[in-house]
Nucleic acid binder design. Structure first.
Length: 677
DNA sequence: ATGGGTCCT
DNA sequence: AGGACCC
């Protein structure tokens, strides 16, 4: 494998058909239901994330087949293992049979993964001014980079496209990267014809289509961010670039490990629908197993003849009907879908929502996540030996409660500031033994206990597609002592068990005193209330984004005057209108409030440091400084961890074990020592 | 399968 | 309190 990110093939922009400009006019009068190609959305999926976290902590494992185990299955495995026949979600025994020298690491403690995910997310949040960044699970992110892309489009110089500069910040013109605006970075879908390269004129022609230009810019931004994730943090990723979340995510899977794909509308053809048509409906994000099987059963009632057997002799997945199958069904419509899916408790606009998804329309916003999670839960399963007696249950509740209290302190508190005496010597020399003072960022109002009975035991029904047997839960207000930071976790946890979890447990299992056959316990805190604090870290959120979007606009107006790129523009000097006179350059309607909203609090322009929610992590500060640091090329030191490009990487020796570890991985490595390996 | 999360009813 | 969705 060559260096995929660095050497990612760039694709020449195909020549633009005549009607590009006309198409832009259509966008002008979009109503809310229209295509909605006025946003630019990136989706990144870190490649085999859990395995990458382990590899970064133990670089020697990079070249070995590695699997990450949770209970009896592999949650994931690295690509070395995949070439040896190991697959995700494979039982450990089967994986070892396929690959006898497989290295299996336990991944049941999610702390290292959560931590790595948060550091990558923090980087992405600070990397593009004005962007919103949403995490999906631990290993995926969406970014809405519309503001930055629109800004950069305005600055393109049509006479020097090959030497373009992408600005990541409007206020710091130095922050950014160079790129070749006559090409897309990475792959495009559909792949361009092998026809003439059209070097001359291709750049000029393409500028007529605002959607295409935005996607081209976004492809370079995505390539840059993925390169930073890889070079600075050690994580490769797959990227998708499109105009909404569902398309960005879907197209990101087209070129899977360590690459990216831009979904490119082709004038005069419905390539986006063709792209969707080939997918199984279950593969469309937002269409889950329940919805899929209801639709499948309705269109092709079980017991009838085999499903429409187009060209393929076999289905890729069992029960797989495609988007095309659904849309080609006689009289298919949003209303028909609504009827099919209508059942007690069904979502309100369900049919229309699915219809839109099947057409690649997705108006859902990229949500800027808050500083604090909205829920924290800890659970364990007891499939092999279900819980049946009170002492067993209490012991497990105690384990879970301890870990919950620890998680609450880790994720819901922040270092307390010394407001009274900033120049005090106390903060300078921290006594090593003492605990840092912390305060709550948000506190939960609700405590919930959930259980789930073992399915195999007492005659529970086992449907083939029963995804998870259902849980039952009870909740109550979280007792205030749970927020006492002055007591050890274990002590708080014990009291929580006695005074809250045990009563909840009794409420859950009222008839029986024992013999519940519990296969799962889950303890959860929810209903977080942000602590009204100083302005700098208000959990109300979003302040930074507003400020920065405003800066993009005003800076854009100023810089545009020097830009050779002036379109059909009538230059305006007012600061209250949108940035460009061209409709295609106007900010999307639903973002206008960002431009008009008043700035709040003491938001920091670079969006970075006030949001640190890492707890004891010295690594987050160092990660911050690493971001823009130049690699000093100190490569003559020993063994030499190298990335796959053969470039040397800054490294340190672990004080505990003597292992040489890349600098970016050191904090994760140390956490492994803390865990006791 | 796991050990998490989100939002909607 | 539970369901459906996501990883």
């Amino acid at each position: 494998m060559k260096s995929a990110v660095a050497a990612t093939v760039t694709t020449a922009l195909p020549a633009q058909p005549q009607h590009g400009a006309a198409r832009a006019k259509v966008g002008e009068e979009k109503n809310k239901e229209a295509d909605g190609d006025d946003r630019v959305i990136l989706h990144f999926d870190y490649d085999c994330f859990y395995a990458s976290v382990i590899e970064n902590a133990h670089p020697a494992l990079r070249t070995r087949p590695l699997g990450v185990r949770q209970k009896s299955i592999l949650a994931t495995c690295n690509y070395v293992a995949r070439t040896r026949g190991v697959r995700k979600l494979m039982p450990v025994a089967q994986a070892r049979a396929a690959c006898p020298d497989l290295v299996v690491v336990c991944g049941e403690d999610l702390a290292p993964f959560r931590d790595a995910s948060r550091r990558l997310w923090a980087f992405l949040r600070g990397a593009v001014a004005g962007a919103r960044t949403e995490r999906l699970g631990l290993d995926e992110v969406f970014l809405d980079v519309t503001a930055a892309v629109v800004y950069n489009r305005a600055l393109l110089n049509p006479n020097a496209l090959r030497d373009s500069f992408f600005h990541l910040s409007a206020e710091d013109p130095e922050r950014g990267f160079t790129f070749d605006a006559t090409r897309f970075a990475g792959c495009v879908h559909p792949p361009p014809d092998g026809q003439g390269e059209q070097h001359a004129g291709a750049g000029a022609a393409v500028l007529d289509d605002p959607v295409r230009v935005r996607l081209m810019l976004a492809s370079h931004l995505a390539g840059y961010l993925r390169r930073r994730l890889e070079e600075d943090f050690g994580y490769t990723s797959s990227g998708g670039i499109s105009t909404n979340k569902v398309l960005a995510k879907l197209v990101g899977s087209v070129n899977k490990p360590r690459n990216q794909t831009t979904l490119l509308p082709v004038q005069g053809e419905n390539t986006i629908q063709e792209f969707l048509d080939a997918h199984q409906i279950r593969e469309i994000p937002g269409i889950g197993s329940r919805t899929s099987s209801i639709i499948a059963d309705h269109l092709f009632p079980p017991g009838k003849a085999v499903r429409a057997g187009h060209q393929e002799p076999e289905q890729q997945t069992p029960s797989g009907i495609t988007v095309r199958d659904v849309l080609r069904y006689p009289d298919m419509s949003p209303a028909l879908l609504s009827r099919i899916l209508d059942r007690p408790g069904a979502e309100r606009g369900g049919g229309k929502k699915i219809w839109n998804l099947l057409h690649g329309r997705d108006a859902s916003e990229v949500k800027e996540a808050g500083v604090a999670p909205t829920q924290i839960s800890v659970e364990d399963t007891y499939m092999a030996r279900p819980l049946n007696t009170l002492p067993e249950a209490l012991r497990e509740l105690s384990v879970l409660a301890t870990s919950l209290v620890r998680r609450m302190r880790a994720d819901l508190t922040t270092a307390a500031e010394e407001l009274t005496d900033p120049s005090s010597a106390g903060s300078a020399g921290l006594p090593l033994g003492t605990q840092q003072k912390r305060r709550w960022l948000a506190y939960p109002k609700t405590l919930r206990l959930s259980t789930c009975a073992h399915p195999g035991k007492s005659g529970s029904v086992s449907s083939t597609s029963n995804p998870s047997f259902s849980r039952i839960s009870r909740s109550q207000p979280l007792p205030s002592f749970a927020l006492d930071l002055g007591r050890p976790c274990a002590e708080v946890a014990e009291r929580l068990v006695r005074e809250a979890l045990l009563p909840l447990f009794r409420r859950l299992h009222v008839g029986r005193a024992a013999g519940w056959n519990l296969a799962l316990l889950n303890v959860c805190v929810a209903n977080m209330v942000p602590v009204a604090g100083d302005g700098s870290s208000g959990s109300g959120g979003g302040a930074g984004g507003r400020d920065i979007s405003r800066m993009f606009r005003t800076q854009g107006e100023r810089l545009r005057e020097w830009s050779a790129w002036d379109d059909d523009a009538t230059t305006t000097t007012t600061t209250t209108t949108t940035m460009m006179s061209s409709p295609s350059l106007s900010p999307p309607r639903d973002r206008n409030d960002l431009f008009d909203g008043k700035a709040e609090g003491g938001a920091v322009a670079n969006g970075g440091s006030e949001e640190k929610n890492d707890v004891e992590d010295a690594g987050s500060a160092s990660a911050e400084t690493e971001l823009w640091a130049v690699d000093d090329g100190d490569s003559d030191s020993d063994v030499g961890w190298e990335d796959e490009d053969g470039d040397s990487v800054a490294q340190q020796r672990c004080a505990a074990c003597g292992h040489v570890v890349p600098t970016f991985a050191m904090s994760a490595h140390e956490r492994f020592h803390a865990m006791g390996d």
